[in-house]
Design a protein around this nucleic acid. Sequence first.
DNA 1: TTATTATTTTTGGTTAGCCAAAAACATTAT
DNA 2: ATAATGTTTTTGGCTAACCAAAAATAATAA
Lengths: 218, 218
Amino acid sequence: MQSETIENYLKTIYHLSGGNGTIVNNKQLADKLNVIPATVTEAVKKLHDLKFVIYEKSYGTRLTALGSKTALSIVRRHRIWETYLANELGFGWDEVHEIAEELEHIKNDKLIRKLSEKLGNPSFDPHGDPIPDEKGKIQKSNFIKLSEAKVKYNCKIMGVTDHSTAFLKYLEKHELIIGASISIKIIEEFDNSIVLVCQKKEVSISPKAAESIIVEAL
Amino acid sequence: MQSETIENYLKTIYHLSGGNGTIVNNKQLADKLNVIPATVTEAVKKLHDLKFVIYEKSYGTRLTALGSKTALSIVRRHRIWETYLANELGFGWDEVHEIAEELEHIKNDKLIRKLSEKLGNPSFDPHGDPIPDEKGKIQKSNFIKLSEAKVKYNCKIMGVTDHSTAFLKYLEKHELIIGASISIKIIEEFDNSIVLVCQKKEVSISPKAAESIIVEAL
DNA sequence: TTATTATTTTTGGTTAGCCAAAAACATTAT
DNA sequence: ATAATGTTTTTGGCTAACCAAAAATAATAA
Ligand SMILES: [Mn+2]
Ligand SMILES: [Mn+2]
Ligand SMILES: [Mn+2]
Ligand SMILES: [Mn+2]
């Protein structure tokens, strides 16, 4: 079985490559995993030997089919746990990521299946991220970034791409939570800030924040 | 924070010493932890340096107050998870131990508190073992081994001391589950086997099995 | 008490994961 | 094209956990 370290590498490569097989470089991995690039060099060599990635010296690393499948199963475990912690145990969406970061490494298929069933086999986690199914298939959506929405659009908040506590707390304060309906009132010409209505209240959102909010245009 | 290895040592020392501060020797630990005695020697030296145990060379090891407190919190996590897996996710009592063996190492007090609350702060796990509270206090009971029960006793099954799948499956087959009411019909003179009635059916139990069943005499 | 057996410790060695510093490559700017 | 900068690799070294084999202790049997 893979170690926790290997699993964290695979998951990180998966995320950095944006889900498709894009090449990832050592610096990016080193930054995300809080190790120095020399450590990454060693690690990706090993992952290559284990057939999880193709590592081309001084160039970069990409997942093989095996690596991709493995990464997806870790992502699945992570997001099932996040959903479980939020929906069944009442944790806030800003708290679940950290705990899931540990729980994701428990390798027991039956456990994940039972959790998933209890949750009604959800396709999205509390941040709106898709949960791969047992085969690794991800339900794809036609969601857009809030920053791409136009004036007068009516949208539903489906997720966030920034998982920081600060950001999530900020959203909560304005009741900008998953599932909330919003309508775009104004997009300021000079700075692209967005004025929208949510729960009958007007809120102004910076373009930076709008970049991190995922919505479905209705 | 303590590593998983250290936690497993502490928990094992706790169990081998029977909960009180009895001295444990290297051979016992080596057997339980599936390592060789030389490895244990190194480990207990380290645990001593960390103030978790008192290790006396060539003699044995016992938990300090700190070690005991730490061990108790691991036991608590283990048993809360076991209860959760059994009661909320529908795992069999023969399946929960193995999974809890991993889950017990997730150190998040809030998580354990939430799980415990959801379960109604139980005092006993699916095997009838007591769950220490946050302070490490164990609710003590006046349970006896079934092998100590006398003829005509009416009892309630409260736990088991053998957690093997084989044994638990055997009990299930005879509907000898936690909470079941039984009455002792006969205790055979020549081999101490016990004939009892459970769910209106007569069952004969070997003295070895009776040693591993914990009951409350009513 | 001496011999035998069991347990414990010491010593030397391994592997996984990490870092620091220096050297080798690549990329970008001038 | 050359210099400056950024990235990657190499080399040497570290710690936590493990094992094997040999030496030292302790416990038990003769
Ligand atoms: Mn992780
Ligand atoms: Mn998520
Ligand atoms: Mn464990
Ligand atoms: Mn138990």
